[in-house]
Amino acid sequence: MKQDDAFAADLLRGHTDTIVLGVLRRGDRYGFEIYKTIRDATGGDHEIKEATLYATYRRLEKDGLVESYWGDETQGGRRKYYRITDAGRAVYRGNVAAWVATRRIIDSLLNVTELEAKESQQ
């Protein structure tokens, strides 16, 4: 079972940029909100590490796919919010299209049928 987790975590990590862009598409978020959204979606299993996310934010910002701004919280430190840019939206759409196409190929190469998917669940 440990190996399954590592495999899934690897797959997930490979799409961190797109996942973060996908979260930001729904609205501006600060680091912890993004982290929490991802963690909740994965049900707490093989989550993406916070350290990975900080590196992702910096890379995305450098590439102009997101912009950041400081919130105006008075208590507990100001939050750094991220906003997706038009470039970010375009990259996101492209990556999603690539993912959908790739998923179909992998499904067919791995002979994933609905039956097998059900068996592995049990």
Binding site: Y30, Y54, G77, R79
Partner: peptide, 17 residues
């Protein structure tokens, strides 16, 4: 400094949780 401040606000939220 920027990173430290960003982390601070996130830590506050995580600790509250």
């Amino acid at each position: 400094q920027d990173l430290k401040e960003e982390i601070r606000a996130n830590l506050v939220s995580r600790v509250e949780e």
